[in-house]
Amino acid sequence: MAKPRPRVKLPKTASAGEVITIKTLINHVMESGQRKDKEGKPIPRQIINKFTCEFNGTPVFSCDIEPAISANPYFEFTAKVMESGKFKFSWVDDNGETYTHEQGIQIK
């Protein structure tokens, strides 16, 4: 499929101290390294191995990922927001690339 493209869903605004839910999805085959091609050769592993979420530069949540995570990986988690600012999300690919997405939130 096309180049991995992150999708993130979080509210535009929140009250100070509110715990918000963040949903993320990225298109990726998550090739496990366990499969073989038509000639019987192993298909090399290529997965998203790390996901991180920061808020205004401070780590909030991250995952260390193994090949047992499904294709098009989905992560849902929470964050407590005290101030307006920007979330930064990163997905690290086995091929060395990092896909990032930034999204802001305002305190009501």
Binding site: M1, A2, R5, L25, Y74
Partner: peptide, 15 residues
């Protein structure tokens, strides 16, 4: 629609 992985392909289709 956010959790539906099919929506990734809708977005690709729009492109």
């Amino acid at each position: 629609t956010f959790q539906n992985p099919g929506m990734l392909y809708v977005e690709r289709g729009e492109e």
